[in-house]
Design a binder for these strands. Structure first.
Lengths: 158, 158
DNA sequence: TATTGTTATACTCTATAACTATA
DNA sequence: TATAGTTATAGAGTATAACAATA
């Protein structure tokens, strides 16, 4: 966790506390941390952190031109891509190939094992989804899915 | 950011990438980080981090019994409450009073300034809400709000 | 001896800056 | 000289462990 807002047990509060809890940003922040933590726990057994899953998915999506490009696309420092790629390579999930046209560049590509691990990550995410939404009605589940999808299309790059 | 899944530009992907992006846990994780970052930026001018807002709200809600109780209620280490309370005290937002019935306990209480700061945090959250959802239709906005509220009632303590 | 708050320390995550090699 | 990748270093954030005061 990081800049995350603290979650709060109720204690049926005063006005300020209730008003804060009622905001979308509070709910997104707290539930987002909860969800990310559960996903992290699911993929830990694979030797992966959530960001590894992000790299695998980005490569699968064809964002593979170079490590620099991957870094800027994912919004992280190039040095972090190096570390993540090192670890994924050690797991046999990606290969690094020097671009013969510009030997400074390392081109990352998914291996079969990498695709297998990505599929496991998708399975893990779907498992967490099922757990998270188990107590919701079908109507609530679809409200949530539609609301998040709409917001994601607005706010996430792509 | 921390255990957060990486956000991805599209590059109309292969199956794995799309399947991951489609999950509730991925959307919650990425949008939650985005939302928390924006909220943090809003309250920074007040000298606060999101977790300070969490403490203010918890105190406003009456969760004030002791620092230990606050720590367990908020799901963080007691030593973190000490640091957050130190900083809030320095801002004049909370007072520490020894409980006369058990002099080991420090009872935290909101000051007028603390209530004012909490109100500013609520305003900041509402501002971010407005920005985040500005591009959504009224239908989408209410889907999002209802979905998150339902999930929050299920998953957040209280 | 057990518990509250505090302080000291260590660990994780990630960015910035320095360095190497290619261009 | 500029750029891709790498390595070294530093900072933020937070937990764990050691400690002091009180019960």
């Amino acid at each position: 966790m990081d800049g995350t807002i603290l979650r709060m047990s109720d204690v049926k509060g005063n006005k300020g506390a209730e008003a804060l809890r009622a905001t979308v940003v509070f709910q997104l922040g707290t539930l987002g941390t909860l969800a990310a933590d559960r996903f992290a726990a699911q993929v830990e057994a694979l030797g992966l952190k959530p960001k590894h899953a992000g790299v695998l998915a980005a490569l699968d999506a064809g964002a593979a031109a170079s490590q620099q490009e991957l870094a800027s696309r994912l919004g992280v420092a190039p040095s972090l891509i190096v570390a993540l790629a090192d670890q994924l390579q050690e797991l046999g999930a990606v290969e690094r190939v020097r671009d013969p046209e510009d030997r400074r560049r390392q081109v990352l590509s998914l291996t079969g094992e990498g695709r297998r691990l990505l599929a496991c990550c998708v399975g893990a995410a779907e498992t967490v989804d099922a757990e998270l939404t188990a107590g919701l009605s079908e109507t609530q589940r679809s409200s949530l899915a539609r609301g998040l999808r709409a917001l994601g299309e607005q706010q996430l790059p792509g």
